[in-house]
Design a protein around this nucleic acid. Sequence first.
DNA 1: TAGATTGTTAATCGATTAACAATC
DNA 2: TAGATTGTTAATCGATTAACAATC
Lengths: 214, 214
Amino acid sequence: MGEKEISKAVIKRLPRYYRYLGELMDSGVERISSGELSKRMHVTASQIRQDLNNFGGFGQQGYGYNVQYLYEEIGKILGLDKRHNMIIIGAGNLGQAIANYENFETRGFITKAMFDKNPELSGMKVRGIEVHGMDELEDYIVSNDIHIAALAIPKAGAIVVAQRLVNCGIKAIWNFAHTDLNLPKDVMVENVHLSESLMRLSYKINSYEQEHRK
Amino acid sequence: MGEKEISKAVIKRLPRYYRYLGELMDSGVERISSGELSKRMHVTASQIRQDLNNFGGFGQQGYGYNVQYLYEEIGKILGLDKRHNMIIIGAGNLGQAIANYENFETRGFITKAMFDKNPELSGMKVRGIEVHGMDELEDYIVSNDIHIAALAIPKAGAIVVAQRLVNCGIKAIWNFAHTDLNLPKDVMVENVHLSESLMRLSYKINSYEQEHRK
DNA sequence: TAGATTGTTAATCGATTAACAATC
DNA sequence: TAGATTGTTAATCGATTAACAATC
């Protein structure tokens, strides 16, 4: 019932709050103030309070925030209390790397299968997850209630495969291909463009060197 | 000589301009106006012109921008005209995936070696790049003029290894570990936090469903 | 020259920070 | 009660968009 629109900047920060709160929980901390959290995370306390208050009053005056409660509430906001069946397309190193993160499962993302166009990989298993041929894609998605596809294939094939995914009703694509997918707006897309990330690092090195070398 | 400070938002967009211009070049387009580019990239023409004018007047009134010239200039701004020797720490699937991107080399990032704490991997080669033991790390960096380290190891070891890298003078870290590295500000860090990316996708799915299901 | 399109200033919009009353 | 800290409003800052004169 989205009354007030939540800004993109806030959403981008939520997973980081979630991570810090998880770590605090693991180290047995029960409560934390926005001031203390701000020191650890290197953001302003004001921003933390503003961000959280987009979703409700999770704290208590004079006390701060209960770590476990806040962790769980942010988890709900992020939808981590729901389960989603996922497939990985592309069984190369990147696809296998994704398949090997057990962490994703604890957050509700269950990798059910992998797909690769190379027939020699069919039947191979990565952490118990089987690789299928690309011809089985549509049938598998429909019969196994797959919501999410991680697209870990080169740019060239990505747009065609994304269209196939959309055609059989996928809800979301986690896109690792170095291209933008222009899909209907009811299909959610999250991009991970490694080459752009590396260029940003390059920019930082370059501009730092220019400033410090006269 | 940093006269005017360039905003972070602009820098984040530069690699995407670079990618689009590269694709235009490949398809033989010689000139493009901010209006035409804005349609392709789904951003405003005003933003494109503002962004570019942070760095200089690359266009020409009545004509637009020369694609190849603009591509090269943005490349220089990003520092892609310089060469950087890189190592990859962690020879698991993710490390291997990074090692296999030949594209990085064409942009000046030369992967010289990989490192892994598992001695069984020592001597293994990925695309001709050899895996070394972690005990060789410091010597290798110093004797081979390594500027950048990609950190593709689990969170637990990342902070210790990052400190070792800093101690022997690394300039930049491309961090794939699910943790923040709080390093001296003369060491550049670019984070790729896959779990946070997946949570953002989760948020999108969740909030979209809540809006569309009454 | 006429048309097109940049470079740039001004206006708007949004996000962050500061401040403080409310309240545990 | 006194101290601490939130929730929230107001002030500031920064980023985006609009508009248009300059000019190719």
